[in-house]
Design a protein around this nucleic acid. Sequence first.
RNA 1: GCCGAUGUGGCGAAAUGGCAGACGCAACGGACUUAAAAUCCGUUUCCAUUAAUCUGGAGUGUGGGUUCGAGUCCCGCCAUCGGCACCA
Length: 848
Amino acid sequence: MNERRKPYPFDQLEPKWQAIWEKQRAFHATNPGEENFDPTKAKFYVLDMFPYPSGSGLHVGHPEGYTATDIVARYKRLCGFNVLHPMGWDAFGLPAEQYAIKTGQHPAVTTRENVAKFKAQLQRIGFSYDWEREVNTTDPRYYRWTQWIFLKIYNSWLNPATNQAEPISTYGGADPNSVRLAYIAEVPVNWCPELGTVLANEEVVDGKSEVGGFSVVRRPMRQWMLRITAFAERLLDELEGLDWPASIKALQRNWIGKSEGAEIDFTIQQREGRIRVFTTRPDTLYGATYMVLAPENPLVGQITTEDRREAIEKYRTDIAAKSDLERTDLAKEKTGAFTGAFAINPANDEAIPIWIADYVLMGYGTGAIMGVPAHDERDLEFARKFELPVIEVVKPPGGEDAIGFVGDGIAINSPLINGLTSGKAKTKITTWLEERGQGKSAINYKLRDWLFSRQRYWGEPFPVVWEEGNHRALEETELPVVPPPLEDYKPTGTGEPPLAKAKDWIRYSENATRETNTMPQWAGSCWYYLRFCDPGNHERFVGEEAEQYWMGGGKPGGVDLYIGGVEHAVLHLLYARFWHKVLFDLDYLSTPEPFQRLVNQGMILGEDGRKMSKRWGNVIDPLDVIKIHGADAFRCYEMFMGPLEQMKPWSMRGVEGVARFLARVWRLIMNENQAGEWELSTAVRDVAQTKAQQKILHATIKKVTEDIETLSFNTAISQMMIFVNAFTTAEVVPLSSMRTFLILLNPFAPHLSSELWETLSEKFGGSGQITEQAWPDYDEALLVTDEVEVVLQVNGKRRDVITVAIDMPDAELEKAALANPKIAALVAGKTIRKIVVVPKKLVNVVVG
RNA sequence: GCCGAUGUGGCGAAAUGGCAGACGCAACGGACUUAAAAUCCGUUUCCAUUAAUCUGGAGUGUGGGUUCGAGUCCCGCCAUCGGCACCA
């Protein structure tokens, strides 16, 4: 009912300091060449994954990572670094467009409103972003350069000789379009006939459209593709040197999906031509008793015999009607059909039947496999279903059953390689095939080229026009290509993008029309970290000097710390690395990798332990928390909950606990007078610290410093609590202890510490705000005391503890232990086998 | 199935191979108060035992191992979570 009294006036001092910081440009990072730039300072670039500004505003998950980076940013500034800590908006996307379809309101308007809301929320939490560097991917001044980078990609190719992206002009072949890093291809997309539109994968749930639940089919359409597969090997290799979580590296490795093996050519019986298969187990070639083509493989029509044609066509039609989900259902039985044709196994010249089956995918390898049922689970299942022969060709090392054994062993029933281990057999058979022109070693990747076009309105238009059926890139001077205003954002229903409705806009010239597809949402986020280095540059996507300073400086270079959610583990982080490498090859960038150190914050669950969602009614709004406890308490609680990377449930009680801690800090320095006003406590005096106070202060400096470096914010806060607990009972609170402590607290609770710092300065003097101070050093010598507690053990079990001089020699410690009555009693009558002495820690007496 | 992560009090969690449970929440007891809130002080892993805050034992998912000593290192198993999934 009646509002509870605030434990300290955060509702006044927090907005006060936020206004001061903004007015003073306190967190503005200066670029080389800018006024006040200090070349003696080292740079530190700490970055958040910028958000999509949705209509519902922030939830408590967003500020978790943001608070972590803010603490690091504030800490590094106090340590004397020139810190780049920016924020922006990844604002192209579906919700704004769908809202536009419903209401007719232009997505730009919706976006502007949402951005304002997000920004106000972030500012209320007191993040120290350099707002002068704010970027928005939907701003023409931004996406002009997104389009410019597309032109660079379009006008490049990967030269196999150098394994680098080079301008297309260095390509000597006849058809440059066949090697461009951006190209056009007919690829299957998710087409929803009911909605009359193409859907992104994320909009398809269980084979149905997310909206309406209509069925979605695969349909080939003309699409822009980016040749990311050309960089597969480098994306894989250069992952190694990055300071990223092992799990994220594993996810990317898995996504790239490198497989080493061989391509083997099988001739077709009584017919011209060959069928090429990819296998990771060329050593099992003698066990290949049949061959399977993907149903969509174009060879199927050519090789099928007349008597089998009807059955094959029926099978292909059935498969085409199936959704991806039905097709990949692992629980279902294997299906397939015999083509009537036979292939010749190059190892033994035996004829083996050629089947088609949907367990072979057109999109991986060559769309054809050799069936080795004895040593592949899927092939075995298929062979059993259709009664095909099973020949064992690998003997397991452990003597288990050879049929169904998929590991490495010894080759058998394989004249050329009998007796060899699987590894050696692979090499030998591959060499043998190579000599006869029937195969070669090969590497395959699961990674596919990036489908880069969308049939959407609210995205970056392509800087491309079409002339007589050919695509042509625009000149850089023609950028930005701005989308036309539309009255109706609905999909056309024909599969043509909404931009196709803008008849005037499409007409580029007499005989050229504009590309009407737009880029996917990932485009803008592929390079935003570069734009932050120099957001106002009108001449270049990022100035050379700025790029070299922020991305090139420092030891490995790049973004020094990047924090964000795991959901971007593969897509955003892989796409951005890809673009970065293209630009690096083309000499626009200083480093081959964008993000040196990556950390994923764990998800924050609701108080009920479930994922926060409207459905469960367990969503926490940061502003509600801030209203009751203040932004500093909110920040500190987010960090105190547990390790940053870990998933953890929210607890309002927990917030109260942290708020109590901050109130204790306040009351350590402030006192409430008779009139109910806060004034500086008379206990705070400019006196020397006691030895004990000095020790705990230095222990706190050490712990907080180390914990910030390792992002262990929860234990840093614990230590500060210990510090405060130790001082609450003190009758005299030394000024110097408080000043140092406030600097340590500043990155965590910037408003409170700023206010208290100012109050102390008013009374005792002192220069500058807390944000202008230097991070304190600790003195290791002050941490040691004259005496230490040494644990006494018998056979590894703690029996007593004694206090001794810190420098007591081992021999004396041993003596003291044996003289201890408890130890003596336990040792009496037994043989002492050994005595382990750990100086300053323990003595362990081993008896037998 | 494959890959990855995680298992510690009533709860969130701490612990360079060296006193398991720091810090916080909750709970209980006390001080202050007419009362409550707030604040401050204390207790709080479990079992047994005790007048006791003594004392003894057990204890970090589970079974082994290495070690004077293991939450921590090694091997096997179980459970939970996340990702990928007919990728030849």
